[in-house]
Amino acid sequence: MKDFFAAVKDRRTYYGISKASPVSDDRIKEIVHFAVKHVPSAFNSQSGRAVLLLGKSSDDFWSMVKESLRKIVPADKFAPTEEKIDGFGSGYGTVLFFEDSRPVKNLQEQFPAYAAHFPVWSDHSSGMLQYIVWAGLESEGFGASLQHYAPVVEDDVRKKWDIPAQWRLIAQMPFGVPVAGPGEKEFLPLEDRVWIRE
């Protein structure tokens, strides 16, 4: 298992993934549980939710995405879309990330002066949750990517897995053992991105 900074450095977007796993399903569950439990949230609202799809459930999700996109992407342009979705579906599992609107609305009612900010802070927390899971999967030898197909599949996901109406689908993370390396990554100069004043 990698240390924290190695996992942060090595975490990349992997599109080529397989249905193999370097760890047990129990270990994957531990990563997701740990992330959901310990992710920061505004006023400790704990609004983050996750659904871990393994095996057939993950396959079903990506089939659902593909069929939803087939309805809106022109047939003569669908082949690249299908190839991309099939790539995500070739992984070992998928994590669905949600935010529960109920804690957010409760905070808006309790602290009306900050009402407009709570949905934004909820999204911040979700981003951190996604990153913790991503780094955790990386540390165990998985490759993953972050996808955003919520608008086209949210209703179907809600029906299939009995997701509460108050859970808002944010992102999806397919993962599996990498079968191809990530693309090259360029870095902008740090002196333009980090200022230090003493």
Rank of each mutant, 00 (worst) to 15 (best):
M1D: 13
K2N: 01
K2T: 04
F4K: 00
K9C: 01
K9G: 00
K9H: 04
T13P: 02
T13G: 06
Y14F: 11
Y14N: 02
I17E: 11
I17D: 05
K19W: 07
A20E: 11
A20Y: 01
S21H: 02
S21Y: 05
P22D: 03
P22H: 11
V23F: 00
S24E: 12
S24P: 01
D26P: 05
D26T: 02
D26S: 05
I28F: 06
E30G: 00
I31R: 06
V32W: 02
A35S: 08
K37Y: 12
K37W: 06
H38Y: 11
H38M: 03
P40F: 12
S41P: 07
S41E: 04
A42I: 14
N44V: 00
S45M: 04
S45A: 09
G48E: 10
G48K: 02
R49N: 10
A50Q: 07
V51F: 05
L52D: 07
L52I: 07
L53R: 12
G55F: 01
S57N: 13
S58W: 01
D59P: 02
D59G: 08
D59M: 11
F61I: 01
S63V: 00
V65H: 00
E67D: 05
R70D: 03
K71D: 10
P74E: 08
P74G: 13
A75M: 10
A75Q: 11
D76V: 02
P80W: 13
P80H: 13
E83W: 07
G87D: 11
G87N: 15
F88P: 11
G91C: 10
G91L: 12
G93I: 12
T94A: 13
L96S: 04
F98I: 05
E99P: 13
D100F: 08
D100Y: 10
V104I: 11
K105P: 12
K105W: 15
N106F: 15
L107C: 15
L107V: 14
Q108T: 15
Q108S: 14
P112E: 07
A116M: 03
A116H: 07
H124P: 00
S126N: 13
G127A: 04
M128I: 07
Q130A: 08
Q130H: 05
A135C: 12
G136L: 08
E140R: 02
G141W: 10
S145R: 06
L146W: 15
L146N: 03
Q147A: 02
A150Y: 09
R158G: 15
R158Y: 15
K159T: 15
K159M: 14
W161T: 15
D162C: 09
P164T: 07
P164H: 09
W167R: 04
R168A: 03
R168F: 15
R168I: 15
Q172V: 01
M173N: 06
M173L: 00
F175V: 04
G176S: 01
V179A: 03
V179Y: 06
V179W: 02
G181E: 12
G181L: 03
E184F: 06
E186M: 10
F187K: 12
L190C: 04
E191I: 02
E191V: 05
E191Q: 08
R193S: 13
V194S: 02
V194E: 00
V194R: 01
W195L: 04
I196W: 06
I196E: 07
R197K: 12
R197E: 09
